[in-house]
């Protein structure tokens, strides 16, 4: 099996799905000739032509609006927002239009499409190329939200998102685009179902639930704690809406302790929802307060390396947070 990076896995998923189904098309800024600013659509236009891989005007609301029109006519558009930060001009189209089509038509219309966007920080992207936007979209019934952290998950979940009957916001942690290579399956064997978390590391004393870039960071923190005889179970949510409550609750009932780790700012982040739901559901099993380990409540990640470092969670900070929960 070939070894691929996460961004190559995204590209492979698009290639395979476009080859499989002529209704699948790609649109967005710079996705065609250039193959995307991160090369996630590289070579697609050469293979599938300038209509199925369409360079759009620089206008995100119409990227989402046009994608919706295509979906209503039976095509399966995969629209790219160049950065998740740039999806906000399309917020009305996504939240008021795309997410509500099925509900507001009482099931007469549906809008299966995928909106892909690179998300998160740690790449010197500063305020407008680093934001974590998942909580905005995970709040919206009618949308599904996926946020993979490994190349194989990115491929399998993107393929499943393209085949899903509902609109999917597919967020790709850009810091991981070229971080690792991994072997991966092709075709149908690569598919992964939405809504299933992965137990990334087995442990007994403490459950650490995370997603995206922080999966690897949390595993590293867990390895450090292992030296202190603290055994941490790390769960990667992979899909945020719908999220896998069963796997998470099962783990918390086993360990009795829970930390939720997320890169977005603390207040109202998606991890707050995970913490609240599991606190309610697993109250009788808990031996320590459910704890969030998240980024500070500043508007976004600054450009200066010193300030970016101060913002980002790292293995030290996560380990410190986990240790507090373990020793409570």
């Amino acid at each position: 099996m070939p070894e691929r990076t996460l961004v190559q896995a995204v590209r492979d998923a698009l290639f395979e799905e476009m080859a499989r189904d002529p209704r699948v098309c790609v649109l967005g800024e710079d996705v065609g000739r250039k193959g995307g600013v991160f090369k996630a659509t590289e070579g697609l236009q050469k293979q599938f032509g300038p209509e199925r891989v369409l360079d759009t005007p620089l206008a995100e609301s119409s990227i989402a609006g046009v994608a919706q029109g295509l979906a209503l006519e039976g095509f399966i558009p995969v629209a790219e927002m160049q950065f998740a930060d740039y999806s906000f001009p399309a917020f009305n189209q996504i939240v008021n239009e795309i997410a509500k089509v099925r509900y507001r038509s009482n099931g007469d219309f549906s809008c299966p499409l995928v909106i892909r966007a690179p998300t998160g920080g740690g790449v010197r992207g500063a305020l407008y190329h680093s934001q974590s936007v998942e909580a905005f979209y995970a709040h919206v019934p009618g949308l599904k939200v996926v946020l993979p952290s490994t190349p194989a998950d990115a491929k399998g979940l993107l393929k499943a998102s393209i085949r899903d009957p509902d609109p999917v916001i597919f967020l790709e942690p850009k810091k991981l685009y070229r971080a690792v290579r991994a072997e991966m399956a092709e075709g149908e064997a690569a598919l992964l179902p939405l809504g299933q978390a992965a137990v990334a590391r087995r442990g007994e004393h403490l459950t650490a639930i995370t997603y995206g870039y922080l999966r690897a960071v949390t595993i590293e923190a867990a390895e450090r704690l292992a030296a202190e005889d603290i055994s941490v179970e790390v769960i990667d949510l992979r899909t945020l809406r719908p999220w896998d409550m069963e796997t998470c609750a099962h783990s918390v009932e086993k360990t009795g302790r829970l930390a939720v780790i997320y890169e977005a700012n603390r207040t109202g982040g998606f991890g707050a929802e995970v913490a609240a739901e599991l606190a309610e559901r697993c109250f009788a099993s808990l031996d320590a307060p459910v704890t969030r380990i998240a980024s500070p409540d500043v508007p976004a990640m600054p450009f200066s390396p010193a300030l970016e470092h101060a913002f980002m969670l790292n293995p030290d900070r996560v380990a410190e947070g986990l240790r507090r929960v373990a020793r409570y």
């Binding site: 209509e51 609301s61 119409s62 989402a64 609006g65 046009v66 994608a67 919706q68 029109g69 295509l70 209503l72 006519e73 039976g74 095509f75 009305n92 189209q93 008021n96 239009e97 509500k100 089509v101 507001r104 038509s105 007469d108 219309f109």
Partner: peptide
């Protein structure tokens, strides 16, 4: 095509429907 109550979002949607109809 099912409408909604914010003002104007049907306009780019119609452009996308138009693109699909052109392709068809």
């Amino acid at each position: 095509v099912i409408g909604s109550s914010t003002v104007g979002p049907q306009i780019p949607k119609a452009a996308g429907i138009g693109l699909a109809l052109k392709w068809k």
